[in-house]
Amino acid sequence: MTFDKQHYKELLLEQKAKGMAILASLDAKTPWRRLEKFGILGMNKRNGDYIAKYNSRRHYPLVDDKLKTKKLAEDAGLAVPKLYGTVQTEHEIPDLVEQLELIGDFVIKPAHGSGGEGILVIMKKTSQGFRKSSGQIIGEQGLVHHISNILSGMYSLGGLPDTALIEQRVQFDPVFADISYQGVPDIRTIVLKGVPVMAMLRLPTHESDGKANLHQGAIGVGIDLKTGKTLRGVMHEHTVIHHPDTGHLISDLAIPNWERILQLTAHCYDLVGLGYIGVDIVLDRQHGPLMLEMNARPGLSIQIANQCGLLTRLEQIEAIQNLPKSIPERLALAKILSE
């Protein structure tokens, strides 16, 4: 069977028209109705109708444990930041620190962390200690304490003992040099049943302390799925055109390797078998797009960044009975979505 793009396009557009007709028939008097009219996905609907429906609990460990995700991705040939090593017990720490002094440029993260908690980015080993991405210096003792906190489960769900991962620090693509501050910008894509439905670029700011977390004041920038060009940015729910720290324009920027990025996100679905995931991807200046992590409970802020509700697109995909199997075909669907 050959891939009939036109057929799928018709199906998608038909569902979109159907959805739009329903939405248009709604009166927008109450705020609830207005959110519905914009196709905004709420927390309860996400939990009840998407996560509970498409994400089977037995697959969760594949994305909740970053070590497993990484192994899985490496085996499948997906590009991920290189793993330098793992720490499971306290007494491994002193040896490790010696090795880390030699590497001098790495990231420490908890295997079960969530929301970017517990991630320590070290740029360089200096005479005073390790220099963090923020420019602060952390001593050897501080590093040991951080790792032991990770091991004792401070950042893991339920406080269970955890593993610390030491991995290659991503040196982000110079295309983002002007529009990020300190941290590493990443690209979050929501993938439903293997079809990317919405994406955003997250830019760290001074306020977010170099973290790509929208809650803490990072900028979320919507991305046109078809072209890979950035749309407007949103910081703390307010529209921004220029980066507050660097002053550079953040919209209408073409993200390099966009096709490759989309491929990676779609591939992740085949890897873990979770129907509704968020995939985080970074652009390394040497290695190109690298898959950082996946999230089985991706947040809803992406809708604010794109100034567009997820629900219409999700329902478009759900309307199609037999989704195409191959990645290029699924990407073709994704591109129709944003039309």
């Binding site: 609830w32 914009f38 609907k45 307010h238 809708q303 604010i304």
Partner: peptide
Amino acid sequence: GRYTGYRVTELWRFREVLKK
């Protein structure tokens, strides 16, 4: 447990979208 409507605080969270 099967309520999938919006939460009241989401009206505030998505207020920027509502302004359109």
